[in-house]
Design a binder for these strands. Structure first.
Length: 506
RNA sequence: GGCAGCGUAGCUCAGUGGUAGAGCAGGGGAAUCAUAAUCCCUUGGUCGGGGGUUCGAAUCCCUCCGCUGCUACCA
């Protein structure tokens, strides 16, 4: 089954002012698993990530660092590129909002919105807090200060507004007609109730700073950061050239993966901007949850952000990826603890899956001359196990389609458990003396099952699954090979070697 | 304050009208191919409290308690 519909998936572009942490790694790993899954399933995939580099905060950080903004962002954007390498991410493109292609794209979008009368000149007035870099309504002030306690000052600025208020009904209609647009359901309900409560027009230009995309024909104005940032998803597929092969193939995007903090921008503003420009909104936005660390919220004051490098050094990249996608229902918040991590590494990966592979491959190495064993007549027990393995793909397609990674992995591990039971029940070590031919068949069935499992685990643990397939002598590794390329008896195999080491406290 | 959701075994959760479930943790046993891994059996819950509807409620209704999210322009 190849040649399905193209698949375009994006991470948010990460704000360069932050250092990459576990949250960034999480979003990106989830997208990577989806991208890899879809590629293995024969779909043409575009997987985009990148960095958001404009805004007053960035300009200030650059100034503090004593360099110009471009030099500064060139430097810090690399931190996120390095994170993709570290986490073994298979992105097809890495976009930066300071790139020429993006500036052009944003200006074209602006002009289209303006041409259609969706943007008008107005005045922004409000209480502004420099510390929070945010505006507050009169009603939000507490004793003349921001809710955060920061000082505020009266602020008036001439800027351009987007007619968001005019899109309220059309947005609600869009949500109604596209029930899968916002996930999980709880988030969808929140967004809908927010839109129902009424929308105000949105200021989409700033004159108070210059580090942004210049508004075409309006000296002194730069674009509102979110209009700039969201449009990266279109830039990467060639906008404004909507007739390009790339754009026609991949737009609208299949999935924008986001953290729950930025869902509104992606599910209210973004579809409104696009519809207003006569363009198609994305098909789906998924808002995942947050990690706490050892039971505590991550915060700057606690200083408990975990750099991805530290996790990978300690546990290994495959283990971290597996943990992130298995430990909690995708969409919910969860806790990242050492104890839970070790439980997954040793319990699931090393003991259940790793040891299954090791015990089977060792027996093959010792008793079958290091070659794929001969396959004799199959018993009902053999067929039952192989059948369970073959039924996984349709199940996984359904779970991945809903970003239910934990359920997909649970399904895989049900078969891992079934395979361990099978080996125990068939006891090939006993058959070795009583019925060597049957022993070979049992080992073939077990190895063939492991091949299925390894192929299906590639999206989550690409390195370990790849090594496992090496050891099985399996050349073809996409999902078409599941039923299409079973193990060939007699194939010479390399010496088995553990691919999921136990974590030992030290 | 308003709106929404949640509260089920030690832990994480599934279960939305018909005799309480899974994984992990705990206890006992089997096996010995294997990363001392695996397999089998098992302890454990008045399903947050109270009231109601029903032949029957974790599951529907009311109420109380506790927790969480959202309530616009900070990534």
């Amino acid at each position: 089954m190849t040649g399905g519909r193209p698949y375009y998936i994006t991470t948010p572009i990460y704000y360069v002012n932050d250092a990459p942490h576990i949250g960034h790694a999480y979003t990106t790993v989830a997208c990577d698993a989806l991208a890899r899954f879809m590629r293995l399933d024969g779909r043409r995939v575009k997987f985009l990530t990148g960095t958001d580099e404009h805004g007053q905060k960035v300009a200030r950080s650059a100034r503090d660092a004593g360099v110009d903004p471009k030099t500064f962002t060139d430097r810090v954007s690399l931190n996120f590129r390095e994170m993709t390498r570290l986490m073994n991410i298979s992105n097809d493109d890495f976009i930066r909002t300071t790139e020429e292609r993006h500036i052009r794209s944003c200006q074209a979008l602006w002009q289209e919105l303006e041409r259609r009368g969706e943007i008008y000149l107005g005045h922004y007035k409000g209480w502004y807090s420099v510390r929070d870099e945010a505006f507050y309504d009169e009603s939000e002030l507490v004793n003349g200060k921001a809710p955060s306690g920061a000082d505020v000052e009266w602020y008036e600025e001439e800027n351009y507004f987007f007619r968001l208020s005019a899109w309220q009904d059309r947005l609600l209609e869009f949500y109604e007609k596209n029930p899968n647009f916002i996930a999980p359901t709880a988030r969808r309900n929140e967004v809908i109730s927010f839109v129902k409560s009424g929308l105000n027009d949105l200021s989409v230009s700033r004159t108070s700073f210059t580090w942004g995309v210049p508004v075409p024909g309006k000296p002194g104005h730069v674009m509102y950061v979110w209009l700039d940032a969201l449009n990266n998803y279109q830039t990467a597929v060639g906008y404004p050239d909507t007739e390009s092969e790339e754009y026609k193939t991949f737009w609208p995007a299949d999935l924008h993966m986001v953290g729950k903090d930025i869902i509104r921008f992606h599910t209210v503003y973004w579809p409104a901007f696009l519809m207003a420009a006569g363009l198609q909104p994305p098909r789906r936005v998924f808002a995942h949850g947050w990690w706490t660390v050892e039971g505590q919220k991550m915060s700057k004051s606690l200083g408990n952000f975990i750099p991805p490098q530290k996790l990978v050094d300690q546990y290994g990249v495959d283990a971290v990826r597996y943990f992130m996608l298995r430990e909690l229902p995708f969409g919910s918040d969860g806790d990242f603890s050492h104890r839970a991590m070790v439980g997954r590494i040793n319990g699931d990966l090393a003991n259940d899956f790793g040891n299954l592979a090791q015990r089977v491959l060792s027996m093959i190495a010792k008793n079958c001359g290091g070659r794929v064993p001969a396959k004799g007549p199959l018993t009902p027990a053999d067929d039952a196990l192989l059948g369970a393995a073959r039924r996984l793909l349709p199940r996984l397609r359904a779970e991945y389609a809903e970003q239910a990674f934990h359920k997909a992995l649970e399904a895989v591990f049900e078969v891992v458990a079934a395979a361990n039971r099978y080996v125990d029940e068939q006891a090939p070590w006993a058959l070795r003396k009583t019925d060597p031919a049957r022993m070979e068949t049992v080992l073939w069935v077990a190895a063939e099952t492991i091949r299925h499992l390894a192929i299906l685990m590639q999206p989550v643990v690409p390195t370990a699954a790849g090594k496992l397939l090496d050891q099985l002598g399996a050349e073809a590794r996409d999902f078409a090979a599941l039923d299409g390329a079973p193990l060939v008896p007699g194939t010479a195999l390399p010496k088995p070697e553990g691919v999921f080491p136990r974590y030992v406290e030290g």
